[in-house]
Design a protein around this nucleic acid. Sequence first.
DNA 1: CGTGTTGTTCAGTT
DNA 2: TAACTGAACAACAC
Length: 252
Amino acid sequence: MEGFKRYLARYAAGRRVRGVRVLDAQVVRNVSGARLAEAVVGCRMGRPSRHGKWLIVPLCEGRLVFHFGMTGGLAWTGRPDGEPRWTRVVFELVGGRLSYHAMRKLGGVWWLAADRALEEVTGTLGPDAAAIDGECFVAAFAERRGRVKAALMDQRLIAGIGNELSDEILWRARIRPDKPVPQLSRQKLEALDAARKEVLRASMKRGRIPHERGWLQGQRGARSPRCPRCRGAVRKDRVAGRTAYWCPRCQR
DNA sequence: CGTGTTGTTCAGTT
DNA sequence: TAACTGAACAACAC
């Protein structure tokens, strides 16, 4: 999401909207295409911000809110040639166009007038995972009783960590994904916090989760995934309703 | 044709 | 209440 934010900031921020084309009305969630166009045409896109996996772009008196589901993205096209496959909404800007695309339509685009709260769209979100300090992070786990992977991915607790990031953080902290939170020692919680900081720092620097040497995510989808640390076989299990990759030798 | 998928939400259950 | 499970959404790839 940080990558999308920077992409929008680089290509679209500061440009005036000339028109909006809604190719699939289903992904514009809370207003009609006509109402969206009425709200944003003539406005200049402001500097985007991010809270967890939500992208917020101020525009005139309101803001556009984007969520990308599992398969969404943004694409900037300077010249009027073909849009990306699965483009759902196109913002025609002075100097180019910004396409919102999504194969599966699990995310969407919202328009929020100035007097509406972000929470109306996003639901309750915890503080952003990249913005909090260690004390706040550890405190978030204080009352949790479930599995650590579920807690990490709970957006109401801490916003921004999804399936892949949670696996990567747990692997780095050497904690198994199904470990009950109450069984984590103070030391382990601090290791989790250190892993959280390092994984997010590196991911935000690159604009995506690295899938390279020394990263568990490089093994996701491999025929026989190997732990980058101990070379043991990586397990693939269902934890907290999602596919978890983890190393049973390193993660206890 | 069946299975799995980077996210979220909801109903139902423990 | 907290938290879990499964289904739903949607559109593929394999």
